[in-house]
Each structure stands twice: as C-alpha cells, then as structure tokens.
Design a protein around this nucleic acid. Structure first.
Length: 597
RNA sequence: GCGCCCAUAGCUCAACUGGAUAGAGCAUCGCCCUUCUAAGGCGAGGGUUGCAGGUUCGAGUCCUGCUGGGCGCGCCA
C-alpha cells in the first residue's frame, strides 16, 4: 500500500533532468534565443567519470548552431533558465560545452524504495507499447540432437524474448519444426536401415545417412513396438539400387533411390518409421532445451503448413501478383525485383516445393496471426537468405521491415588451449547436452550471451567449467549468495531486516560504495529499455558484473551487521535492493541466483 | 569474382548507438582475512582502436579505398 504510493511518485533522475531541460528550452524560446520550431533531442547520459557529476547532457552543443553562440555560452544560457530542484545539488559547464549534473546524496537512494516496491517488476518499461512480437529461434532440423552451435541461438533467443517481454512487448516464442522435405526422408531411411540391421538383415548403411548413435535408439524402439513386421529381406531392399559412395557411386543418388525403395516397400508403414524418428528426436530436443531453461509457446510444424494448403496458397498469391514465372519446368519467384541477387525457385521441376516456398508461407502466416514484429534468430551462415524472404514479404504486400533477422555467429569451442574441430556429417560434434553436463546450465547460458551475438565467439570450456575466480558467472552468483548469507547472519542475531526503517535512514549511507551502488541500481531500467530495443542481452551480463563488483567492494569496505540499528537497517535495506536487481538480471539470462555457494 | 559480418591491451571482450583522459576480466607484479563467505577487495604496469584518407565543434563508432579473417553465393535444407 505504502509502496504503491511511492512507486508512482518516484521519478528517475533522468526524467527529472529531462523535464528541467525542457523547461529551460521553452524559456529560451520565449526569450527569443531559440526559434519556436526548435525541438532538440534530449540526450542525457550517465557520466563515465565521477568528476563529471552523475548525469550530463550535450544539449548546448546541439543547439550551438541554432542559437548562434559558442557552446559554453549556450550552456550558461540553459543553466540560467533551469528550475530549482532539491534533487539536483550542483550544475556546471565542462569541457567543450557539456552540462554536468550532480545529484543530491539523499535523492540517490530514492531508487532503493523503488526497487523494493516493484520487486520482480523493477526495470519493466513500456517502450514496447504492447506490440506483438514473434520470436522464432533455434528451429534446428529434427534430424539429430542439438549441438553447441544451436546452444548459442537458444540462449540468445530466450534472453531476447525475456528482455522484450520486460520492455512491454507481447512476446510469443516459436520453434519452426522442419518436419517436411528430403532431409526428413533421409532420416527415416537411415532409421529403417538401422532397424533392418537390428532385425538381422545385413543392409549397408548409406554414406549420406545420419550416422549418429541416436538412430539406433529409434530403431530399437521400433523393434520394441513392431517386432520385425516392418522388415524386408536385405536382397529385396538393395536389389537394383545404384552404387553408394563407398562403391564409387554418388551418395546423393544412392540415398534418393534408397528413400524411394523404402517408400515402395513400406507403403503406409513408411510413415510409422518416419514418425517414430521425428517424434523421438523432437522429444529429445524439447527435453534438452527445457533442461537448458529454454521453452517455447509453439512448435510450428512445416508439415502442418503444407497439409493445410498454406504453401500452395502463398504461391498462388505470388502468382496472382504476377511475381511467378516458369522456366525449365520449375516455378520461379521474381525476388530480384525486390533487391535479391537473383530469382529463386519455389517449385522444382520434379513438382516438389522448396524449403523457401514453405518459408514464404510461414512468414506470411506469422503476419496473418497479427504480429507487429517478426524476429528470426538465425545462424550467420544463413545471412544470404534474408533478402529473398524480405522480397517475398514485399511481394505479398506486407512490410518487409516488420521482419528483423538477428544473426548469431558461430562459437568455436576451446579445450586445453586447442580449438575443437567439429563436423556435423560424421557425427563428430559436441552436443548441447554434453556441454550442459560438462559446464552446467548457468555457466553455459551466461557464456553464450555475454558476447554480442554478431561477434565471433570463443567458448573456453575449461574456463566455463572452472569453479574459480576466473569464471565470471560465479562472481555474480557469489555476490547474490553473499547478500543472502549476510541477511541470514543478521536474522540469527534477531535483527531481521525492516525495510521501512532502513528506507527512513538512507541518509546514514555516506560511504562511496553505497552511493555507487545506488547509482548503479538507478541505471537498471534504462538498461533494460536499451538492451531490449537493441536485442543485446550481453549488456545485461556486463551490467551484472558491474553490480556484483559494486557489492563486493561494499562488502569489503563496510560492515553490514552492526550494533547501530538504524545504520544496520539502512545497509541491509540497500543490499536487499541489490539482491533484487541481481535476481532480476540473472532471470533475464536464464541463470540461477543461488542463496549459498 | 560478387555480397554480408568482423578487426580495440599479451589473451577473451566492452564502450550507453557521434561525446570528455578508450574500459573490464584473465595473465603479470605489489598489498588486504582475530571482521557478516578471500569464488572477495585495493593498487600498478600494459593502446598509433588493422592501414590510409574524408565528413564536423568532436570519430573506436559515419563515408571511401586498401590489408587480413569468417560466412554466403543450388531446382539442398
């Protein structure tokens, strides 16, 4: 109740200064120094150097041309017209014409009340204005387990979604399941061959098949459920097939022929094998991601898109718009009319629709579901794909700018000072599950998002695994655990924290470390807005390191559990607020905030 | 060859989107546990921001050209 009142009354320092500057600008206009039409952008920034005060603006330098006076004189003119505010202790001109603001010490701690009142909601803002965002990420083909490359997209996408939700967007998280197409047929054929082998048939495994051991698991499950009722003699299966790569043939031609043979022999039963493989792998992926703290609102099936005729409908639409032509027996989309390098095939000469055709339908469908913003998180190797999808959106009379493709660079894994070579084909890759078991979910999630997504990243397994001071994740979690333990210590002495008492005595907080912490806490909401709109969760990681650093410095500089009750309450209240913000920030990154370590 | 991304301390990376003396961690070297968790703190050294121009009050950030690295350029997905 009390807090609800405070919540609405407290303004951030930045807001206060912005209001003051607006008043000053208005006054400049009435004084005839500035044209009425002028509406300068208010750029107020946190200072890097304490000597420059707490906040600063470059407003005077921005206005210098319009006013026709040197920046420092403009600055003086602005300062002369600033209204008095108790929160502002001092204002001065510095450097080329910056106006520096020094906040009153008492005002600095207003933020503590705000944090404790808003709790999990501290930092929430409304820059999203309730706009509906669809975040599609991971979307790895369900042909095998996720590997560490998918992990980065998963961690990044999940954190971006958390950020956007916090920033006032309505977020839906979606995984596009590529359960149609040739790759899935290859998976089914691979599974069937393993099944035949389990049934005692000596069928050679195709060179282009999925070699991973997980295929055996699916085959075993098939034996369990269907006995050998899906089996055919090896001779029948292999009769008349072209040579595989191992016999000097073409592995692509071989696998296609094998798929055809599987479908011919199995008839409707092919679907049983297909579904068994798909379901098993998809479930594995779902469990894997869930254990990684990554969940989705929707697992969108490519097959459902085809079965419901949406792919045909999308092609039809393009056709009606006159953007489709036929050449060499295939249907082409005129994507080059919209900035793509060349036109693209949507229906092959063999009648099969391309992956791109489904993707057009999928993105069109996303917009039909009335999302305002579409975010796709893709591996950077797919960047060449962006123009054609945007081209399709434009051709379908939708706004291509509604689509934001966020590219995530690959992560190289390092262990023992050596780069780990990975190849998907041979099944020689580190799985996400392996990584999680190796370094733990918290460390993995944190390592993935602590770098800008478009930066190439080195993932040092030894470092992520090390439970030492070298590992930044423990540094942050340790700060949180320390606070919890201090509060426990106080409670054991019968000194439970009473935040109302603490808030009433924030004027006793005079140490530098205390002021530094308060300033850091106040920066958090704008950090959320900035990180969300820039899709940059790594900013949260850096902030949390700073906040943890502030807490550790405070811990070393001051004693919290002291006899003087008012000072004690003020300090405990402050660290409660720090704990809250640590929790909020770690939650965005999907990292646990342990109470003890 | 064309297109996209990247290049910042010995190493891994930031830099609030054009602002003040470019900052952290690791590594190196000094200090600080009879005190609420030393997985911590304080301090020192370390830079021509790949190179060369340009834009302006002001550039790591923007524009042009190079150099070096990654990725992409299928009727694959």
């Amino acid at each position: 109740m009390v807090f609800a009142l405070i919540k609405s009354e407290i303004e951030s320092m930045k807001t206060i200064i912005e209001q003051c500057l607006h008043q000053a600008v208005d006054q400049l206009k009435t004084d005839g120094l500035l044209p009425e039409s002028a509406s300068p952008k208010m750029h107020i920034e946190n200072t890097k150097d304490k000597a420059h005060g707490d906040l600063a603006t470059n407003l005077a330098m921005m206005l210098t041309k319009m006013v026709g006076q040197p920046p420092r004189e403009v600055a003086q003119a602005i300062i002369d017209r600033l209204p008095e505010r108790a929160e502002i202790a001092k204002v001065e001109i510095a450097g080329p014409g910056f106006i520096n603001f020094f906040m009153a010490d008492t005002a600095k701690f207003d933020v503590v009340a705000q944090v404790l009142a808003q709790k999990d909601d501290y930092g929430r803002c409304q820059v999203g204005q309730g706009r509906r965002v669809l975040v599609e990420f991971v979307s790895a083909n369900p042909t095998g387990p996720l590997h560490v490359g998918h992990g980065r997209g998963a961690a990044y996408g999940a954190s971006v979604a958390n950020l956007l939700a916090l920033a006032g967007f309505k977020v839906q998280k979606e995984y596009y399941v590529n359960d149609a197409g040739r790759q899935m047929d290859i998976l089914a054929a691979s599974t069937w061959v393993r099944y035949l082998q389990r049934c005692g048939e000596s069928v050679a495994f195709p060179a282009n098949g999925y070699q991973g051991d997980y295929i055996y698991d699916v085959a075993d499950a098939l034996v369990e459920a269907h006995g050998n009722s899906l089996a055919h003699p090896a001779e029948t299966v292999q009769a008349g097939l072209p040579a595989d790569e191992s016999d000097g043939g073409d592995k692509e031609a071989f696998i296609d022929a094998l798929i055809e043979r599987s479908k011919t022999l199995l008839k409707d039963d092919f679907e049983i094998v297909f579904q068994a493989a798909l379901k098993a792998i998809l479930q594995d992926i779902q469990e894997d991601l869930a254990e990684f703290g990554v969940t989705f609102d929707e697992w969108f099936s490519e097959r459902s898109l085809m079965d419901s005729g949406l792919v045909d409908a999308a092609i039809e639409k393009l056709q009606q718009a006159g953007k489709i032509y036929e050449q060499n027996g295939a249907l082409w989309f005129r994507s080059s009319e919209y900035g793509d390098e060349k036109d693209r095939v949507v229906v092959r000469d063999n009648g099969l629709k391309t992956y791109f055709a489904s993707d057009i339908a999928y993105h069109f469908n996303k917009l039909e579901r009335e999302f305002d913003i579409l975010i796709d998180v893709w591996g950077a190797d797919h960047h060449g794909y962006v123009p054609r999808v945007k081209a399709a959106m434009a051709a379908l009379n939708t706004d291509p700018d509604a689509l934001q493709v966020l590219l995530v660079q690959f992560a190289s894994l390092w262990r023992g000072g050596e780069k780990l070579a990975m190849s998907t084909r041979s099944g020689q890759f580190v799985t996400l599950r392996q990584l999680r078991h190796d370094v733990g979910t918290d460390a993995a999630r944190f390592f993935y998002v602590q770098r800008k997504s478009e930066q190439h990243m080195d993932f040092d397994l030894d470092l992520a695994k090390s439970q030492s001071n070298e590992n930044p994740i423990y540094y942050i979690q340790y700060a949180h655990a320390r606070i919890c333990q201090v509060l426990n210590q106080a409670a054991e002495k019968g000194w439970a924290v009473e935040t109302q008492v603490g808030l009433a005595h924030c004027d006793l907080l005079e140490a530098e470390a205390e002021k530094d912490l308060a300033i850091l806490l106040a920066k958090y909401p704008e950090l959320i807005a900035r990180a969300a709109t820039a899709y940059e969760p790594h900013q949260i990681a850096y902030y949390l390191k700073d906040l943890a650093q502030g807490l550790h410095a405070y811990y070393n500089a001051c004693q919290f559990v002291v006899e003087a009750s008012e000072l004690r309450q003020a300090r405990l209240t402050l660290i409660c607020a720090v704990r809250q913000v640590l929790q909020n920030g770690l939650a965005i990154l999907g990292v646990d905030a342990p109470e003890r370590m």
